[in-house]
Amino acid sequence: MNADQALLAYVSRLGDNALILGQRMVELVAAYPELEEELANANFALDFIGQARMFYTYAGEIEGNGRGEDDFAFLRDENEFRNFLLIEQPNGHFGDSITKLVLFESFYLLQLEALTKCADTRIAEISARAEKEIRYHLRHNTQWFLRLGDGTEESHQRVQGSLDNLWPYTGEMFAADEIDGIFAEFFDGPHLEAIHAQWMTNVELIISQATLDMPEDQWMASGGKQGRHSEHLGFMIAEMQYLQRTHPGATW
């Protein structure tokens, strides 16, 4: 794999994480328990989808075959998506959704911070914009995580369950593969060991503030970054792509 191929793969992965998480959050639109949180969730989902569009548009330009954002989003199959397994996990209850966002966004914010300093100007610019959005998301979602963890006995137990269930999906975020390696070397990209250490420090602090127990070291799932997904992604993609697959080229 050469540097350009790695760049394309890296940008495309950034888009996949943003799109699939945005799509997951869209599933909750009109299903939130409170109007104010409903608006927050919809805003956040749109932030992710906006980021996906920017990453996909750039990926299409790098590739140079005339593919645009819609081709990446709607005309690729499940195994071509390289998002983390964590992101495609079902929304579950409110505590599950919040915990998933806190775990991912704690990583994503560090990744974006590093990317603002990478050698690829376009990625740095997109990341600078996305970083502001995610910094606010994480602030908001962390507050919910603390409220639930340090809330009632029931909320504490349920969010501890969320944390324990989702923890095995966190390892994949830090498992560097060839693409991460080339991107770090040739484009001054993020070093995942350093991000892992910082993430662990940040997440341990939040978990202790939420009066929750750290999950034990354990087996970690992997495969999303290589296109091997859990059983959940296929259904999501089917729903998301239905219109374009049924009416190819349909526009507003």
Partner: peptide, 19 residues
């Protein structure tokens, strides 16, 4: 807006009225 505490109120105000 409705909120359970001050911080949540500030966030909800941001998400509701400054979009």
């Amino acid at each position: 807006i409705h909120a359970a505490d001050d911080q949540m109120a500030l966030d909800a105000a941001r998400d509701t009225y400054t979009r």
